[in-house]
Simulated scan of single mutants.
Amino acid sequence: MNRRSLLAGVAASSAALAGCLSLADPAATQDETDPEPPADPDDPIARATIGSQSEDEPPHRVRLWNLDDDRRAVALEIESADGTTSFDGSYDLDPEAHVAVFLHERDEYEITVDVNGEEQSTTDLEESSFDDPCPGTDLFVSVGGGLEVTNESDGDHC
């Protein structure tokens, strides 16, 4: 192989690679970010505790937020897999308002959210989520009444 062919090949490859990299749109390669709680996440309009508090295990915190610009009527139902533990609450949430429920009983749970009388989502919490350092689940009513769910293993409530 002669030196000119080698240099020409390297130059062509570099130019092609540079062209591909310059065409990439950085915004197109980023994933959509999860919704963030509003400025004051420590001030829910309602707070409930299910089960007995333990110093050894932190609770699994469940928050339901209204990120819509309009007031929303929401219903939050939480039921353990064995049916022995349940929570049922209905609220009128102003924009950026939320409710918080702290689950102290280690179990699997089913969470159902209704927005303005329509079921939006059912989410399952695994018992293994209680193994996390400070588990939390946030449910966000989005613009138009849809629902998004995020989970975190190291929340700020512990």
Rank of each mutant, 00 (worst) to 15 (best):
I78K: 01
D31A: 15
F140M: 11
I78R: 06
L103P: 09
D25K: 07
G9I: 10
A12I: 12
P133M: 02
A12F: 03
P41V: 00
G51D: 04
L93M: 07
R47P: 00
F102P: 02
T29K: 03
I111Q: 05
S129K: 10
G144Q: 10
A18F: 12
A100C: 09
D124L: 06
E126N: 12
Q120L: 10
S80M: 01
S128M: 09
A100R: 02
E105C: 09
S13N: 03
A8K: 12
C134Q: 04
T85R: 11
Y109S: 03
D131L: 14
T29H: 09
N151P: 02
A81N: 13
D40Y: 08
A39G: 07
T85A: 06
Q120H: 08
P35Q: 03
V101K: 04
V141C: 01
R4V: 10
E36I: 08
Q53K: 15
S121N: 10
V101P: 06
N151Y: 03
T29F: 15
R63Q: 06
P44M: 00
D31F: 15
A15V: 11
D92V: 05
P44V: 01
A48F: 07
G51H: 05
P95Q: 12
V10M: 06
E79Y: 15
C20W: 15
P37R: 04
E96V: 04
G155R: 02
A100Y: 00
S52D: 10
T150N: 01
R47Q: 10
E148A: 15
R106L: 06
L67W: 00
L139F: 09
N66S: 05
D156T: 11
D34I: 05
V62E: 04
L17E: 04
S129T: 14
P37C: 00
P133D: 12
L21H: 02
E108L: 12
F130A: 00
P59E: 00
F87H: 14
D138V: 01
S54G: 03
R61T: 08
P37A: 04
E118Y: 03
D88H: 10
P35E: 00
R47G: 01
S22T: 10
L76D: 01
E118A: 13
S129D: 14
D131K: 12
G51L: 04
A73T: 11
L6E: 12
S54I: 05
A18N: 07
E96L: 09
S13I: 09
